[in-house]
Design a protein around this nucleic acid. Sequence first.
DNA 1: AATGAATGAGCTTTCATTCAT
DNA 2: AATGAATGAAAGCTCATTCAT
Lengths: 222, 222, 222, 222
Amino acid sequence: MATVVKGWTRRKEARPAEILEAALALFAEKGFTATKMEDIAKRAGVTTGTPYRYFANKEEIFKAVVRESLIPQISFGEEMLSQFHGSGQALLEEVLRSWWQGVGETNLSGLPKLIIAEAGNFPDLAKFYYEEVIERGVRLIGRVITYGVERGDFRPVDVDYTVRVVMAPVIMGMIWKHSLGVCEREPIDTERYLKTVIELLLSGLTQPQQPANPASLEIPHA
Amino acid sequence: MATVVKGWTRRKEARPAEILEAALALFAEKGFTATKMEDIAKRAGVTTGTPYRYFANKEEIFKAVVRESLIPQISFGEEMLSQFHGSGQALLEEVLRSWWQGVGETNLSGLPKLIIAEAGNFPDLAKFYYEEVIERGVRLIGRVITYGVERGDFRPVDVDYTVRVVMAPVIMGMIWKHSLGVCEREPIDTERYLKTVIELLLSGLTQPQQPANPASLEIPHA
Amino acid sequence: MATVVKGWTRRKEARPAEILEAALALFAEKGFTATKMEDIAKRAGVTTGTPYRYFANKEEIFKAVVRESLIPQISFGEEMLSQFHGSGQALLEEVLRSWWQGVGETNLSGLPKLIIAEAGNFPDLAKFYYEEVIERGVRLIGRVITYGVERGDFRPVDVDYTVRVVMAPVIMGMIWKHSLGVCEREPIDTERYLKTVIELLLSGLTQPQQPANPASLEIPHA
Amino acid sequence: MATVVKGWTRRKEARPAEILEAALALFAEKGFTATKMEDIAKRAGVTTGTPYRYFANKEEIFKAVVRESLIPQISFGEEMLSQFHGSGQALLEEVLRSWWQGVGETNLSGLPKLIIAEAGNFPDLAKFYYEEVIERGVRLIGRVITYGVERGDFRPVDVDYTVRVVMAPVIMGMIWKHSLGVCEREPIDTERYLKTVIELLLSGLTQPQQPANPASLEIPHA
DNA sequence: AATGAATGAGCTTTCATTCAT
DNA sequence: AATGAATGAAAGCTCATTCAT
């Protein structure tokens, strides 16, 4: 939230970032349509017209938020994959957990909900998000699963579709936080949720053929 | 859509149902906010004021759609559960498949997306949906899993949280169809998706035949 | 409120009167614009279209209410005047009290408020009411005052304008009942109000016994 | 009406006042409901959305009109009372005349009609007006009468109710101007009306100098 | 570069009146 | 004579975007 500096002293180059930060917070809370430009401006500590100096319109602000905040998280996952040498199980868990930490526990977790909600009414946004985020994400998880299958850690599976099944609980966890989750009597215990997800997925993916290697059932980090 | 008839008569008793059908189609396509009352009216073959003869406002139309269409599907699942005598695996597959058939392949599959998207801006709707749909659905799947665990078909699991993990891929499948799914080059093969989901879940839930590593079976917090 | 008779048995000739009664009650409560035709119908125990069998539109219903209910009250006052033989004071009191009883304490007391409120937006209604009610009422009170002056009971006064001053507290009393009166902590004691009105008016009109100050008796513009 | 200026600037600080002035004129003419926001805007020389920058909604515009225009008139009367040293008669006449001048002869005279008309349908407005205007007005006139009674200028009277009787002709005079008054062949001569009011009221309130004729003071029927 | 007043199309909801039955 | 479903124009309020300063 924009460190307050004495009036004109505030460095101009911080403006766009402050606007994007404010926009992300509001997008996550209310969605795209329900977020008013004026609220973004106010929250960024500027006036109505200022965001238009830096971004052509609300859609461009959304794209910029995605580019600046979400896409680096995917790059981070790709980085991790390229340097990984352990078991498929460990890799999958590592990727899911770091995604959860970098996205699920930040305001970014509001973006999947937003895009799901508004894709139909903003086809440009949908296309952009699909190409820049979804496709890269799917490719990343696909490579993770293939890695495990090729190492013999995972059963041979229908990779393309398994990717979606693997991602679903993580995405849903994020969506939940930002929508009906607020109706629940006791908030979700995210660590417990994540643990359940990983346990079920790994257990479902793991090669059951040979007498199980007890180590491979253990939860890494445990 | 409504055979055109001269004058207003004849369709009298059919009107509310026609309006709900039109509303569901539009809700699924555009969401709650973006669905204009006038569009509902037009699609139902009536004029602006007519829906208000039957429903107090847009929120009530939504509730009626849920009550008339979605809730019976849950009742159907409860019915199925109470009469089932086979294995846990068979029960879970049966429930998921029939849910998919009765909801996922109809316009009803648009409702989860809608409610996720608009919960924050329509707390009344959220509360209604949470109490009437989510809680009953969660309870149903919880009983299905417990059934399997008690029969020894499934590993002992953290039922409350496993429910969410089991439902996630099904819900996501429905959400996908109505949002970013339209961006995909080739449409999802739903049978293939469902097969992958069930295979992974059953494989993840099923009691391993050989002596398992006890540590990995523990229920968190237990 | 429409004696309930077995369905079709209800004598048709009672319909218009029932509709007017319902209309008066609602007009008094909500005013002209805010009274919905459908509410009139419902309250009269018929359906939406029925009032239109008897009256061309809402304005005509209003006129009929005035003709059937309010105008007879004026005739009654005229009757009283033509047969009266006592003092001017007694006559004025009699007229005011019987007006209060026949109008002020019934739903008719809502009509002055209504017409005052809506005259600007329904010029036809205003003209009708002015000609049929106001002019006759003013003429009546004018003759009452003249009666008192000619008998020497009242000071010689500017009759035309005194009429308005005399009527004002009675009209305001009725208006009050139907509008801001509801905000008062304790409801108006109408008998006490009426007593205060009459006391002040009679005391203000009565011929002082001692040689009067001629200046104060002059009629302006005379 | 707002000298037309190029662009939107310049009138910045004047806007709210211009809007209130336009609103008052329309409220006086048509009442609250029948005054369209767009008409207020047009008359103030702006477009539909502009009034909403300054006032949350139509009700708030009404309240602002009352606060800015009517309430100062009451304060003025209170001021006058606190500095007055003459006879009760002179005080009452002074107060009524200055009220007439400051309210009766301006657009403010439309407010009593408005509030009487719409109290039932806008309870919030009614409560506000009752508390901010009526109660203070009643208290003011009550003190004026008490002043006269205590000085021996007025007969001892039922102050609470006499207040209403005294105010009635003044309020009615204002109401009349804005409703059925327009139907009259020759417009009311306000000076003549006011003179008649004051003469009748003072004559009705003044302590008879001579031994009173008990009969004439008795309340008939008592 | 930044401001913030102003725009105006767009949406939900209401209700007098009509007219097929 | 009576019904009551349907009409459709109208009104309050919102908000992305513009542009004079």
